[in-house]
């Protein structure tokens, strides 16, 4: 389990990184490496060029811009758990981060890496969809923002273009007094989720509900809740048009069964939490 050879770059500036990415059609961005390096060690991934972005300090920041919480691509899962801005304005992210893998993985793994990896069972793609996030992408001479809903294409697949680097994610901050909840089912704490649900309830906006780990990409099920008043109705509506993935360890009907429970628990907690 030793990786194939590669050419290594450790750019000190964003421009330098973008230049390197522009120059190669077989470059991998190395952020935390907690998904990429296992694949490289197993020789399931073998990029010719590895661009290590860990020295790009500008990507390792959390800040608030208007109604957005902006999290740099290089922010580690662990640092989101205790971040004062996160705890004050969007504690949901903190409780989601706590469920990611284990401590020695969270200290290194990054939010940007997780978003680009786009594992259907990972927490951050779900959070991105739930919180109507914008994904900031930069390439040499170009920058764009894309809605999270348009970023995730399928399992391990995004609309990130060649030469592009995900530099930040911009979560929409729910209003003060919002209720929020996250539920996931794993075989063991720290494993990838079999199914998960997250919910935000605000006084002045429609309820938001997203589910993950069930279809190849996170699903925004907020629309299904329109006009409904009871939790059982909402569960039924949220799970109705879902086509769960099917694999031997988590058959489709199993995912469907547990999803209903997760969604229900999540809705109930978010509703309870609102303005209380």
């Amino acid at each position: 389990m030793k990786p194939r050879g590669f050419t290594y770059h450790q750019p000190k500036t964003l421009d330098e990184a973008l230049g390197l990415l522009a120059a190669s059609d077989d470059a991998a961005v190395l952020a935390g490496g907690q998904s990429l390096v296992p694949m490289m060690n197993a020789r399931l991934a073998s990029p010719e060029i590895v661009v290590d972005i860990n020295r790009l300090a500008s990507l390792d920041a959390v800040r608030i811009e208007g109604d957005r919480l902006v999290v740099g691509a290089l922010v580690r899962h662990e640092s989101l758990i205790g971040h004062p801005l996160v705890q004050e304005r969007l504690p949901l992210l903190s409780s989601m981060a706590e469920t990611i893998a284990h401590w020695p993985i969270r200290t290194r793994g990054t939010i940007g890496g997780s978003l680009v990896h786009a594992d259907p069972a990972a927490q951050w793609p779900l959070a991105a969809v739930l919180l109507e996030a914008e994904i900031e992408l930069q390439s040499q001479g170009n920058a764009r923002r894309i809605d999270a809903a348009d970023f995730f294409e399928g399992a391990l697949s995004t609309t990130l273009a060649a030469g592009e680097l995900l530099t930040a994610i911009r979560f929409r901050l729910p209003s003060a007094g919002h209720g929020a909840a996250f539920r996931l089912l794993t075989r063991r704490p720290g494993d990838y989720a079999i199914a998960m649900a997250a919910c935000v309830v605000e006084a002045d906006r429609p309820r938001r509900l997203a589910i993950g780990g069930v279809e190849p990409r996170p699903l925004d099920r907020s629309g299904a809740l329109d006009g409904l008043t009871t939790v059982p109705e909402m569960i039924e509506a949220a799970c109705r048009e879902v086509t769960p993935m099917d694999d031997p360890r988590a058959p489709a009907d199993y995912r469907r069964r547990v999803l209903a429970q997760l969604v229900g628990d999540c809705l109930a907690e978010a509703l309870r939490g609102q303005a209380s």
Partner: peptide, 11 residues
Amino acid sequence: LTPARLSALIA
């Protein structure tokens, strides 16, 4: 005794 199996049996 995996959860998926037991869940299916119970269902």
